[in-house]
Every structure is written in structure tokens, then in C-alpha cells.
Write a protein that binds this DNA or RNA. Structure first.
Length: 217
DNA sequence: TGCCAGGCCGGGT
DNA sequence: ACCCGGCATGGC
């Protein structure tokens, strides 16, 4: 079922060319900055970092947290995010000497647990790092995923992160490229057709898959 | 103009 | 175990 949904979305919308970032490190930074935040604001902060040539582990780790705060200000929650990012960078430097390839070469599940143990890295941020920066086969679940799947009645409203992740991965081949494209397509649908307040369900490519009587909320 | 955005943490029941 | 407030900027 969920694989058919993927094919439907891909046929209707085409490839999304995600994640919107150029290097694995930039993707990692973006994953932290985009927590509950509009991507446009994240881009401003990343632009600040790029202008100062700080899009590399050692260089960014060397920036004092107070300076980092100012660079991250446009991304919102800037004090929290400066600490979280610095914290993640310390981990990266201490455990892997800033070598991302080395980090992603380790066991996926072990690495996932390590990331989750860091303050400020929850399941979505960890999985975004693993999939989009590391190319590892982990499905990223986000607010859009939850909303789209629950409105169609495919999952329970109360389903938690891991239930949704297992539900999807259980029906899909273990393919990072597929997980990548699928999540990107869900974000597109979430932004354009499945908004919180003004959903345009009747224009959504999945419209005919809605349950009888319209979407559940 | 208010409401919202690709979460996560910590403290209170 | 659950629930909830806090965190903050910029765009529509």
C-alpha cells in the first residue's frame, strides 16, 4: 500500500532533489537548525556560516557559543540551537576527529543510538542525519508524515515516531534513495495540499485515496 | 495581524 | 507515564 502511494506521488510530482544542501556537513547543520523552523530562516543562518567559511566540523567547533548564537539568530531558537550544534560538533570531533566518512562507516543502529544520546538530537534529527547526510537506510518521519498518514487513516492519530517508521519501512525495500525521495515527496504534499489550517485535499495527488467521508481531521 | 514552521528538552503532576 | 510550557525569527 505505502509503496503504491510512493509511486503515485512520484508520478504526479517527480523527483524533489533533496536534501536542499550541498555537503553532508551542511546537511547535518541544517538538520539541527530546521527543528520546528521554516527552512527559509534556516537558509539565512547557513548563509551566515558559509560567508565566514564555517561549514566544516573543526572550523565550526572552534567558534565560541556566543558567536555562534549571533550567526544562528535568523534560524530562531538561536540560543538553544547554538548549544545543540556545538554539542553535536564536540561529539563529532571527539569521537571521529571530524571525519564524517568515518562516522557513517560505523554500525547504523549503534550510531543512531549515539546521536540520540546527545542533548538536542531527537529521532527526526538523528534520522535526517543518517539518511540525508550519510545515505543510510532510515526513513525520516516528520510532522508532515504524521499528518498525511493519519488523515488518510493509514496510521492512528496517536501513533508515535517509531510506529510510523516501522509501518513505512515494513512495506518498503531497504533503499536509501527511495526513503530519501519518499520523505521529500511527503514534505511537498504537506506544504502544498495537507496544511494544518487550510488543507487542499481535493487538489492532492492522493485525493482519491481518502477514506469515505473525507479526511479524519 | 496573528499564526505557523521539516523538534526537543525539562519540570511538574 | 503523561502533559505542557519554553525556546525565537521571519514570511504569509
Amino acid at each position: 500500500m505505502m509503496h503504491d502511494v510512493y509511486r503515485r506521488l512520484f508520478d504526479a510530482l517527480g523527483p524533489q532533489y533533496w536534501w536542499p544542501g550541498e555537503t553532508p556537513f551542511e546537511i547535518i547543520v541544517g538538520a539541527v537548525l530546521t527543528q520546528n523552523t521554516n527552512w527559509q530562516n534556516v537558509e539565512k543562518a547557513i548563509r551566515n556560516l558559509r560567508e565566514d567559511d564555517l561549514l566544516a566540523p573543526a572550523a565550526l567547533h572552534a567558534v565560541p557559543v556566543e558567536e555562534l548564537e549571533e550567526l544562528l539568530r535568523p534560524a530562531g531558537y538561536f540560543r538553544v540551537k547554538a548549544r545543540r550544534l556545538h554539542n553535536l560538533l564536540a561529539f563529532l570531533m571527539e569521537q571521529y576527529n571530524g571525519d564524517l566518512d568515518a562516522m557513517f562507516a560505523s554500525n547504523v543502529n549503534a550510531l543512531r543510538e549515539e546521536l540520540l544520546s546527545l542533548n538536542g538530537i531527537g529521532p527526526e534529527t538523528a534520522d535526517s542525519i543518517l539518511l540525508y547526510a550519510g545515505g543510510l537506510p532510515v526513513f525520516v518521519v516528520d510532522a508532515y508524515t504524521h499528518r498525511i498518514l493519519s488523515r488518510h487513516g493509514w496510521i492512528d492519530m496517536e501513533a508515535d515516531y517509531h510506529q510510523i517508521q516501522d509501518f513505512l519501512q515494513g512495506q518498503l525495500p531497504d533503499d536509501p534513495a527511495l526513503f530519501n525521495e519518499y520523505h521529500a515527496l511527503l514534505v511537498y504534499v504537506g506544504k502544498h495540499y495537507c496544511r494544518k489550517r487550510s488543507p487542499k485535499c481535493d487538489e492532492c495527488p492522493l485525493h482519491d485515496l481518502l477514506p469515505e467521508g473525507g479526511p479524519g481531521l
